[in-house]
């Protein structure tokens, strides 16, 4: 078994994770595009920490990229977290509210 094959198999397995139903669907294309977009988005967001300190941004960048690739596909989890379940939305709202109040109180 050469290394190329294993890499190919890994990639195939990764792609298979996206497929729901009968393989060829436009849902699959949406999921793959969404996955890549999400990866790029969080990489850009991690770069943001350069405003606080540059080394922190570099460490975060590496960690986030590694984690996102390791836990791929994350898009399914993203979708689940953005479900229209009332309790989930309320949970996120409470978290947001706590963060906003904490940040502003801390800053003041």
């Amino acid at each position: 078994m050469t290394s190329t094959e294993t890499f190919y198999e890994k990639l195939k397995k990764w792609l298979d994770n996206f497929i729901t139903g009968s393989g060829y669907t436009n849902i699959t294309t949406g999921y793959i595009t969404g996955e890549l977009q999400f990866l790029v988005f969080i990489i850009i967001l991690s770069v943001f920490f350069r405003l606080f300190s540059v080394p922190l941004a570099i460490i975060l960048l590496i960690f986030i990229t590694a984690f996102a690739l390791y836990f791929a596909p994350v898009i399914k989890d993203v979708e689940k977290e953005n479900m229209n379940d009332l309790n989930r939305v309320l949970y996120w709202m409470v978290i947001y509210f706590a963060i906003i109040i904490a940040i502003t109180l801390w800053g003041g």
Binding site: K80, M83, N84, D85, L86, N87, R88
Partner: peptide, 9 residues
């Protein structure tokens, strides 16, 4: 029950 009627789909 909200967990039945309003669950995510």
């Amino acid at each position: 029950k909200a967990s039945v009627i309003l669950k995510g789909e």
